[in-house]
């Protein structure tokens, strides 16, 4: 479970859960502090990635500023036994960034969530039409964001 076996893991995770420095040797300061070589730091990071603790190592953009100014959370009603089929189809679309089956209260009822990023309302509508026809689902709601109240990365350590 928790991959915090050593203090080194902890320190590395603490360093890479945030924003690494934009400089020629971004891991040098960390290596120095931990008395390791930069190569060893990189190997550690790769190990964490192989174990799945790190899902991805990448640049994360502010999608609004990058021109993807429409994002929609779409919640679909799906039979649980049909969810895998639908989830796989949705995952195949580049515009779908997240797709989950959720355990939802009955009063809400829409249990399959997909997050969609696009450059216009028209794109969203066209994409939803495609998703609906490819999956055969017709019961969904679009839950658009009106205002961002908070968006940060999780600090685990």
């Amino acid at each position: 479970m928790i991959r915090m076996k050593t203090n080194i893991d902890r320190e590395i995770i603490k360093f890479i859960q945030g924003d690494i420095p934009v400089e020629s040797h971004p891991f040098a300061s960390l290596a120095d502090r931990l008395n390791l070589s930069e190569e060893e730091i990189v190997e550690h990071i790769k190990d964490l990635q192989d174990e799945g603790v790190i899902r991805r190592f990448a640049a994360i953009l502010r999608h609004y500023n990058a021109g993807f100014n429409v994002n929609a959370m779409v919640a679909w009603k799906v039979a649980v036994e049909d969810a895998d089929r639908v989830g796989k189809i949705m995952a195949g679309f580049d515009e779908v960034s997240h797709c989950y089956l959720r355990d939802v209260p009955e009063e809400f009822g829409y249990n399959l969530f997909s997050m969609i990023h696009a450059r216009s309302d028209e794109q969203i509508i066209a994409l939803l039409r495609q998703l609906a026809s490819r999956t055969g689902l017709s019961n969904y709601i679009i839950i658009k964001s009106v205002r961002e109240l908070r968006k940060v990365s999780m600090e685990y350590v």
């Binding site: 890479i16 603790v53 899902r55 990448a58 640049a59 994360i60």
Partner: peptide
Amino acid sequence: GIIRRTGAILDS
């Protein structure tokens, strides 16, 4: 403001 950060996306 285009790049938020560069780093690891961890699996919670």
